[in-house]
């Protein structure tokens, strides 16, 4: 895949950084001239993935979250969100809607939201080593008037 632009961001797994991560990724993607809905979809996916790192991967501890955003010439946005936390024992189960280990106030819909709001997500995880969530979304080319 051809690369046209990339940014990397490392944040600590503090919940106060959730909003910052959403805004930073959205600001970078803005150069592709997405619609409000497209940018909101990306913001929502980033929020879910970063929250998972904080609530699950680094539960009870503080660690680093590594975010890489790649924009291709064909307006494909790829957001990779990686942690070096506890890892997921059963990825398939974790991705099932309503499955949660986060208690009664967590809906268990984080992955369902990411799947629904992106074109494709993939999850790689190793117990004790960490998890990488990759979210892909194509920004539609719009007719531009000179």
């Amino acid at each position: 895949m051809e690369k046209s632009n990339e940014m990397k961001l490392t944040i600590e797994s503090r919940s106060s950084n959730e909003g910052f991560a959403r805004v930073a990724v959205a600001a970078f993607v803005a150069q592709l001239d997405p619609t409000i809905e497209e940018i909101n979809d990306i913001r929502t996916c980033v929020s879910e993935a970063v929250t998972n790192c904080i609530v699950h991967a680094y539960k009870e501890t503080l660690g680093k979250i590594y975010i890489t955003v790649t924009l291709s010439d064909s307006s494909l946005v790829t957001v990779k969100i990686r942690d070096k936390g506890c890892g997921i024992e059963d990825v398939k189960q974790a991705m099932e809607p309503l499955f949660t280990t986060g208690g009664s106030e967590r809906a268990g819909l984080g992955f369902a939201v990411m799947e629904s709001f992106s074109d494709k997500i993939s999850v790689r995880s190793k117990l004790g080593q960490g998890t990488t969530v990759t979210i892909r979304k194509k920004i539609q080319q719009r007719v531009r008037y000179a």
Binding site: N40, T44, E48, E105, A107, V113
Partner: peptide, 13 residues
Amino acid sequence: SFMDSSGIGLVMG
């Protein structure tokens, strides 16, 4: 101005 699945938990609860 923004809500993620944490908002779902809030409404359901």
